[in-house]
Design a protein around this nucleic acid. Sequence first.
DNA 1: TAGATTGTTAATCGATTAACAATC
DNA 2: TAGATTGTTAATCGATTAACAATC
Lengths: 217, 217
Amino acid sequence: MPLNRAVPEPTIARLALYLRSLRLAQIEGLETLSSADIEARTGISSGQVRKDLSYFGEFGKPGLGYAVTPLVDRIAHIMRLDRNQPVMIVGAGNLGTALAGYTGLHESGFQLVAVYDNNFSKIGRRIWDLEILDIEDMPAINASMSVEIGIITTPAPSAQMVADQMVKSGVRAILNFAPTRVSVPRDVAVRNVDLTQELQILCYYLPPSATTEEMEA
Amino acid sequence: MPLNRAVPEPTIARLALYLRSLRLAQIEGLETLSSADIEARTGISSGQVRKDLSYFGEFGKPGLGYAVTPLVDRIAHIMRLDRNQPVMIVGAGNLGTALAGYTGLHESGFQLVAVYDNNFSKIGRRIWDLEILDIEDMPAINASMSVEIGIITTPAPSAQMVADQMVKSGVRAILNFAPTRVSVPRDVAVRNVDLTQELQILCYYLPPSATTEEMEA
DNA sequence: TAGATTGTTAATCGATTAACAATC
DNA sequence: TAGATTGTTAATCGATTAACAATC
């Protein structure tokens, strides 16, 4: 009877890492892995591994470790990755088109089933094998498609409008690539991926150059 | 004499957010903003704003708030965003090509100056206005270019090799889009952006569907 | 059984929040 | 001056790490 309440978010992020790593181990034919083995493969400490897994039950055997295949299945089930998840992309620009063609999506259990845009010169054209749909039609189309995961790849000024349209259409989880925060109801999950923010953070950690030293002096 | 030691990483990430938000305020013609105003614009609490800024000095005036333009300049300087930062992309596939065409890069103070690949059918071709270079030539080419920031947009199996080549060529900060961790010397900064991990995390937070309830029962 | 490794508790660490004296 | 808001200290919160009894 696992008490799912209050699982730390970093634990969920690491669960995804364990899953990827364990699937590689599965391919290598390994049947059992100790938390120390998982540490060696992921860089996450064995104690952390055990703590993370313990939020969801007792999956290991003292003295032996974890049976790989059952553990993969358990994590996949916990994360709802044991079924094919349909996904929509809104914004058929460079990034949206690139993501639509990304094979990793399918390999990770996601299936892109719709691409939307608001630009009439794009609507009706095809991206890979999908027709670009009119964002205005999303509520009607999604009534039958029931896609719950949406990816925003529009410019920042459109992002809020797109998020609103998604929520209206039944989307419950949003991955936002637009460099702006979007407001959604509390029961809709949002994660932001902000490329320029990441680059800016990296800049800060760049070692001081000779030029910089000069400037500070 | 700011004690830069031990500035929390989340503070640096928020600094980038403040910067973006303050620049918008600048465009709106606002001259002064209190930490409460910044909270209203970013969603980050006023106390957190003041604490974050206090790591780097005293920029505000009690009773008044912060003068926008000087604050923008200070944050930009702290984050080394007061100069144009050259960037390289390695991996001229869908994602690399999309990023190369992303106008936000330039708008945020970055300039893409080189694109590398290891595929002979791509090397020599052009992406936007840049010729795709042979990854083998990176150390020689970068000796004169001195690019310190690299973006990896290759498939996972190539990522480590690319990171090694980058380090060898003088890159000091890496943004890794490949779904795998890369090992680099301690003095090289790495940030990972993992699209499928983000989607998987979102899956976990999806509200339980009728179907799921059934399955659990 | 003896050795290995789990699951969990308690200690530590670090970041966020609350609160307020200093001060513009 | 009175009102507003800073910079900072102390309290709180939450996550990670260390350690070990339970157990395969």
